[in-house]
Design a protein around this nucleic acid. Structure first.
Lengths: 347, 347
DNA sequence: CTGAAAGCGCTTACAG
DNA sequence: CTGAAAGCGCTTACAG
C-alpha cells in the first residue's frame, strides 16, 4: 500500500505521449486541446493515479481558490448553521471552504489566521472571537486578502459585515412582551465587550423608552451566553425586590437556560414568566414549551456572506457593502401574557 | 490597503543583508545561525511584512503539516464536541487542522476528500458519511496518506478506527432498564446501513437475551437519527398492540425526540415511559427531565484520534491499532421504573 | 556560520 | 492544436 512516488504531470505526459503543457491544458479544461488528445490524457491521469498538486499550481498562478472560515464557537449550533449556509454557496462554485475553530480565544484566533494566510487563502470569512483586538486583522488587510465578518463586528473596523438587524430584532421582541401586558422587563445574558450586545440591548431599551417602561422597571442582567448563564440570570432576576415578569434573552442558549431554571422552581415559561430568545435556532421550535425567538435567517446570512466573498475575490477588492439582514419574531409558547395584567392576549 | 507585491525570503535577505539560505534557516529555527544574524533577519521579516508561503515550502519538502478533519454532520453537537477534542491536541502540536463538512452526503465527501488531497494534507481524520462506498478511500490509501476513522467504521476496511464500545454501551443501558422492572423494551432510531447501528442494536439484543426478555417483547423501530426520527419512533411504538414501557434510543437526538413526543401526549419521560439515550451530549444533563444516557467520552475520543494520527504521520505508516473507548451509563431522571412492576427501584 | 545552485510540480507566454 | 523554456517561493545539500 505504501505509495509509489507521487505521479506528476510529467508522468502523465509520458504515459499519454504528449508534452506536459498539453497535460496542464487538459487539467484546466482548456478548449484548445483536440478531444481525442484530451481523452487520451484523461485516461493516463487515471492510470497513473494522479493527484493534482494545488500548492504547486498556486505557486505559479499566484492566486488560490482556498477560502477559510474562522468560527468563534463551533459547538454553538447557531454557528454550525451559518457554516452550512456558506458551504452551500461555495460548493456550487466548486470551492471547498476550510473551517477553523477559535473557541472564542483571541490567541488561538491569531494562530488560525496565521496558518490560513500561510496556506495562501484567497479570502477569509470570520466571526471574530470575543476580545479580538482592533489590530488583529491589520496584517491580513494590508496583504490585500479580502475579509468579511459575519454576525459580529469589530469596534472600529472597515471590514464589511454581514449580520442581522440586532437592534430591530430586540425592539420587536420587547414590543411583543409589552403588548402582552408585561411591565417589568429584564434583559438576560451577554456582556458589554461584544458589539452585538450593545445593539441588542439598545433595541430593548429603545422599545422600553418608546412604549413607556420606565428605567426603574427594567432589569439588565449580564451573564455568559450559554444555558448556564441563562440559569444564573433567572435566579438573579427572581431574587430582585421587584422581579420582572418577562425577559428578552441575548440568545437562544440563554433563553433555554432561563426556561430550565424556571422549571427547576416549578414554574413554566409562558404561563408564569415570559421568555423570548434571539437567533431562532432549530431547537427553539422543538423545545417544550416552544421558544418564542427572533429569527435571523442564519443560513441565508451565511449564503450572503459567501456570495459577498466570492464577488470580492473576483473583483479583486477588499471593500464591500455591509449587509444587515431582516429579522422577524416567531411567536411560540414561551411568551404568554402577564398573569396580572388586564391586557392579556390583546394585540 | 492594496498589497504591495508579496514579500519573499529574497526581500528579507536584501533587507537584512544576508543570503536567502540564511533567511530560510532562521525561519526554520535552525541553531546554525549566529544570534545577531537571526535577530537582524527577524527584524527584516517584520519590516517587510512577510507571510510564509507554506505551499512553496511543501513543494520543496514534499511533506506538509496540514491535517484535515472530515465530519459528516457539523450541526450535530456531538461531532462538534469531537472536533473540539481533536483541536486541543493539534493545537498543542502547533498544527491547525482544517475541518470540512460533508453533510452526510457521499458525493460531497468525495469532493471534500479530493480538495484536501490536492491541498497536500499529511493525514485525514474522518467520520464517514452514511452510504460511503467501500472504495471511497482506496485512492487516498494507495497514495500513502494516513487516515483514521472516528465513531463510524466502514464494512470491510482496514483503516484504523477510534470509537466507543457501542455494543457494551447498549448492553449496560438495556440491563439498566430491565433491572428497573421493564419487560417490554424498544430500540428506537437508526438504520441498518450504519455499522454503528448493528453494534448498538446487538448490545440491546444480547442484554435482552441474557436477562430473559423474549423476542416477542422486543420492538425494533428504525428511523432517522434526529429529534424528528425519535418522535416518529415513539408514535409507532405506542401504537403497537402491546406497547413497550421503555426504549433505548440510537442516540441522544432520538431520545430527545421521543421525550418531546411523550410530552405532546401528556406523558412524562421517567414516570410514564423510560427513555435512555446514547452519546451523553452536553444537553442531556440539562434537559428536563434530565436524560439517562451512555457516556462515550466524546472529547477524549477526539483527543485519542488526534494522537493516533500524529503518531502515524511521525512514523510514516498508514496502519494503527483500533481503539475502542470505555463507556459508562449516566443515570438521570428519564429512566424510571416500570409503573406496573414489582421490582421498582430495586437493584 | 553563510552563500550559490538546483529543483519541487505546476502554469504561462511564446514558438511553431 | 502542441512543445520547449522560464519562473513561482521555498529548502536542501554542497562549498567555502
Amino acid at each position: 500500500m505504501a505509495s509509489r512516488a507521487k505521479a506528476t504531470i510529467l508522468d502523465i505526459a509520458r504515459e499519454a505521449g504528449v508534452s506536459k503543457s498539453t497535460v496542464s491544458l487538459v487539467l484546466q479544461g482548456s478548449g484548445l486541446i483536440r478531444p481525442e488528445t484530451a481523452t487520451k490524457v484523461r485516461k493516463a491521469i487515471e492510470d497513473v493515479g494522479y493527484v493534482y498538486n494545488r500548492g504547486a499550481a498556486n505557486l505559479r498562478k499566484a492566486h488560490s481558490n482556498v477560502i477559510g472560515m474562522v468560527i468563534n464557537d463551533l459547538t454553538n449550533p447557531f454557528f454550525a448553521e451559518l457554516a452550512v449556509g456558506m458551504e452551500r454557496v461555495f460548493q456550487a462554485a466548486g470551492i471547498v471552504p476550510f473551517i477553523a475553530n477559535t473557541a472564542e480565544n483571541p490567541v488561538r484566533q491569531e494562530e488560525v489566521l496565521k496558518s490560513l494566510m500561510e496556506q495562501g487563502v484567497a479570502g477569509l470569512i470570520v466571526s471574530p472571537a470575543r476580545g479580538t483586538t482592533p489590530g488583529a486583522f491589520r496584517r491580513i488587510e494590508s496583504a490585500g486578502v479580502p475579509i468579511v465578518f459575519t454576525m459580529r463586528r469589530l469596534p472600529e473596523s472597515r471590514i464589511p459585515v454581514i449580520a442581522p438587524d440586532n437592534h430591530r430584532g430586540a425592539f420587536i421582541a420587547t414590543e411583543h412582551l409589552i403588548r402582552k401586558g408585561h411591565r417589568r422587563l429584564a434583559f438576560f445574558g451577554g456582556s458589554s465587550d461584544l458589539v452585538v450586545y450593545h445593539e441588542r440591548l439598545g433595541g430593548f431599551l429603545e422599545a422600553c423608552e418608546t412604549l413607556g417602561i420606565p428605567a426603574s422597571d427594567r432589569l439588565i442582567v449580564e451573564g455568559e451566553t450559554s444555558r448556564k448563564g441563562g440559569m444564573a440570570c433567572l435566579e438573579t432576576a427572581l431574587a430582585a425586590a421587584q422581579p420582572p415578569t418577562a425577559a428578552l434573552c441575548f440568545n437562544d442558549a440563554v433563553a433555554f437556560g432561563a426556561m430550565l431554571a424556571l422549571r427547576k422552581r416549578g414554574l413554566e415559561a409562558g404561563a408564569d414568566f415570559a421568555v423570548v430568545g434571539f437567533d431562532d435556532v432549530a431547537e427553539a421550535e422543538h423545545y417544550s414549551p416552544a421558544l418564542t425567538s427572533v429569527a435571523v435567517d442564519t443560513a441565508g446570512l451565511g449564503e450572503r456572506a459567501a456570495h459577498v466573498m466570492l464577488k470580492m475575490i473576483q473583483s479583486r477588492t477588499t471593500r464591500a457593502e455591509d449587509h444587515i439582514g431582516a429579522v422577524s419574531l416567531v411567536v411560540r409558547e414561551s411568551s404568554g401574557p402577564d398573569r396580572n395584567s388586564q391586557v392579556g392576549d390583546a394585540a
